[in-house]
């Protein structure tokens, strides 16, 4: 059976049918995305695979097929039964996963969160790529820079109920009010995480609000969708496009000058660091109160308050996008 989604083929699974951990190889670390089939988390998984092969760890990668906190909770429960050594989760909703993560910790499983945190008592460490504030600030500051501090913008989000996007929207609104009163958000539209729908929504916004100066797409399929709409409307350069997305999906539009900036951290490093941190917890190299963590190929990274900091969001532009392979 091939196993394209990244789990290592279970070569000798019969070793531990009683629920004890298989110590034959290295430890088993289970990595959960918010949802599968999402390019962002696939990039994180590629980084995690690098770390797993460096450290001799067996990596499991699974999650809900659609972002679903109840299902995340269920998968953690099943991993507890399965007997993994460490779990790294990108939490769709902090309360929803925390109850099962606490249970995992009580059973001696190390718990790391990445991308989005659980409640602090439900995990050992949070690999923090950027806070919602960091993301919101970067987006609004970039919008203000492109619009010269004054203008109207519209936001395309994934779905109205996606937890992280709700956080980002709030952060965007706060930054907008605090620092850039000249900016005005005139529309917020969901695109169901579909590129084609983001295209249709952006087209409608461009025509309904001819004075819109910038489209801000905060889910990754929406960025190329919005860019294509602006391009087809013949408004490239006149209406700016920025967003949170993967550099690879936006390379063409960045080079064509349709999309100005794609904001993201180095997702591969995020997955890499999550597995690194989980492994260090297992080996006792990383304990509560630590201020430094050996991040393998990333060198030493800062730890504060139970949070391992990956660094600030990164701005991908036409100038640097070709340096990245995700």
């Amino acid at each position: 059976m091939s196993c394209a989604a990244g789990c290592k083929p279970a070569d000798a699974p019969a070793a531990s049918a009683d629920g004890t951990r298989d110590k034959a190889g290295g430890p088993t670390i289970a990595l959960m995305p918010k949802s599968k089939g999402n390019g962002y988390f696939v990039a994180a998984k590629r980084g995690a695979e690098d770390a797993a092969s460096e450290l001799g760890v067996k990596l499991l990668f699974d999650g809900p097929t659609e972002p679903d906190p109840a299902r995340q909770n269920e998968i953690v429960e099943t991993w507890i039964t399965r007997g993994v050594d460490a779990i790294a989760v990108a939490c769709e909703n902090r309360e929803a996963v925390s109850s099962s993560l606490r249970k995992a910790r009580a059973r001696g499983i190390k718990v790391v969160t990445y991308d989005a945190d659980a409640l602090p008592d439900a995990r050992d460490f949070f690999v923090n790529q950027a806070t919602p504030e960091g993301i919101g600030n970067a987006l609004v500051d970039e919008a203000a820079r492109l619009l010269g501090g004054r203008g109207r913008y519209a936001v395309i989000t994934g779905s109205l109920t996606a937890g992280n996007m709700i956080e980002w929207q709030k952060a965007i609104e706060r930054r907008n009010a605090d620092r850039h009163p000249g900016l005005q958000r005139i529309a917020l539209r969901p695109c169901d995480d579909l590129k084609d729908r983001a295209f249709a929504e952006t087209t409608a916004i461009l025509n309904a609000h001819p004075d819109v100066g910038l489209i801000m797409a905060i889910c990754s399929p929406a960025v190329p969708g919005a860019a294509e709409a602006v391009k087809q409307a013949g408004k490239a350069g006149k209406v700016r496009v920025i967003g949170l997305g993967l550099p690879g999906e936006n390379r063409r539009y960045l080079h064509e000058g349709v999309t100005d900036t794609v904001i993201l951290w180095k997702v591969k490093d995020l997955g890499y660091l999550a597995v690194q941190a989980a492994h260090a917890c297992l080996e006792g190299r990383l304990r509560a109160g630590a201020t430094r963590h050996d991040g393998g190929r990333l060198g030493e990274v800062r730890v504060a308050d139970g949070q391992i900091l990956l660094g600030e969001p990164f701005l991908f532009t036409r100038a640097n996008v070709d340096q990245f392979d995700f």
């Binding site: 599968k36 696939v42 063409r252």
Partner: peptide, 27 residues
Amino acid sequence: REALRWAREGRFVQDLPPSVQWLGLGQ
């Protein structure tokens, strides 16, 4: 749906040749 998700992992099929868009007729 699941087989496609498994095979593509959400990756776009990118950079189709320009003759494809609008069947080569222009927008």
